[in-house]
């Protein structure tokens, strides 16, 4: 396999009453090895459920309706959607790990940090002794810059701060040296200063190891800081995808432009913060035309009638917008 992970035509549905409603519509993604890939979009665009689908952890009643997720694991290529439960368990935490948005609620409140770190090891290395596990756990805590590792091991989640907990979650996620780390808004719930620390930490760890990262966020600043390639999600579809520099310098899709304008910055004249009018249409209420049409300032008649295709507008730069066609034609 050329890529570490290849998602093809992924469709996810949920149940609304008795109706099947699409939440994710034909998403294709390819993640290169040793790459950090950003997935950006507003809430409800389908970013998080894509990550959950990769690990087979979609909450009821969501399910994958169609598609394939191929993963280049240590022992050969695997089709993740076709794995048995047992095979999927071997992938989780060992080859693909995940960290979550809310570190405060990501650790089980009634067990110590030590026990939960040991679990991550023992699920995949049943024979490992306590002493060895302790050594590895301490080493990991040290790597994620936890000040007093010994003391932290004996702590419960409610005795630690959000930043510390997220470091611990990262330590747990990386403890088995996974090939891919899914980071689902890992800094959203943290203070701004802690956010920067966590992002630096993730960058450092990525440099040291061969782990690829899928960084899911609604914050383009985080993408700029950490990612090499980025896909912009809107209403269950990818609307734009490119290398980070290309995306920021040659932004093509009106939605991406809107997101960029909505980023606050300290430098320059303070203008009123831009917001994209309206909200993301929920699954089941998508129009047959372009899904962003309702909120788009450059909406044309065609946009309401017909769905634009995701087209390559420059090498490696994909965009789903009729405006681009016009520019290409012109």
């Amino acid at each position: 396999m050329d890529h570490l992970l290849e998602i093809r035509n992924l469709k996810i549905t949920t149940l609304r009453g008795k109706d099947k409603v699409y939440l994710l519509d034909s998403v294709d993604l390819s993640i290169r090895k040793k790459c950090s890939f950003g997935v950006v979009g507003e809430s409800g665009c389908g970013k998080s459920i894509t990550a959950s689908a990769i690990l087979g952890l979609l909450p009821y009643p969501l399910r994958v309706a169609e598609g394939s997720i191929r993963f280049d694991s240590r022992d050969g290529e695997k089709e993740l959607l076709k794995l048995s439960r047992k095979e999927m368990r071997q992938v989780r935490g060992e080859e693909i790990s995940m960290i979550f948005q809310e570190p405060m609620t990501s650790l089980d409140p009634i067990f110590t940090v030590e026990m939960q770190m040991f679990e991550a090891l023992s699920f995949h290395h049943p024979g490992m002794g306590k002493g060895e596990m302790r050594e590895i756990a301490l080493e990991m805590l040290h790597r994620v810059n936890i000040p007093r590792p010994e003391q932290t091991l004996a702590s419960y989640a409610h005795q630690l701060s959000g930043g510390q907990l997220q470091r611990i979650m990262i330590a747990i996620a990386l403890i088995n040296n996974p090939r891919l780390l899914l980071a689902d808004e890992p800094t959203t719930a943290l203070d701004v200063t802690i956010q920067a620390q966590i992002l630096h930490l993730m960058n450092d760890l990525k440099e040291q190891r061969d782990t690829s990262i899928i960084m899911i966020t609604h914050d383009l600043g985080v993408i700029a800081e950490t990612c090499e390639e980025v896909a912009v999600f809107y209403a269950g579809q990818i609307v734009e995808q490119a290398q980070v520099v290309e995306l920021f310098t040659h932004t093509a899709h009106p939605y991406t432009k809107g997101l960029l304008r909505a980023v606050t910055s300290l430098g320059g004249a303070q203008r009123k913060l831009y917001t994209i009018p309206g909200i993301v249409p929920p699954g089941g209420q998508w129009s047959r035309g372009c899904r962003f049409a309702e909120r788009c300032e450059q909406c044309m008649e065609k946009c309401r009638e017909e769905m634009p295709a995701l087209r390559e507008i420059a090498p490696g730069h994909f965009c789903r917008c009729f405006l681009q066609d016009r520019e290409v034609e012109a």
Partner: peptide, 26 residues
């Protein structure tokens, strides 16, 4: 539906452990 249950599953926990050690005790 708590985050920590999903986190436990993401670590590769067997369902038995997820359900009895984590979910039921909580």
């Amino acid at each position: 539906r708590q985050d920590y249950i999903k986190a436990v599953r993401a670590k590769g926990s067997p369902e038995r452990v997820t359900i009895f050690r984590h979910a039921f005790r909580n």
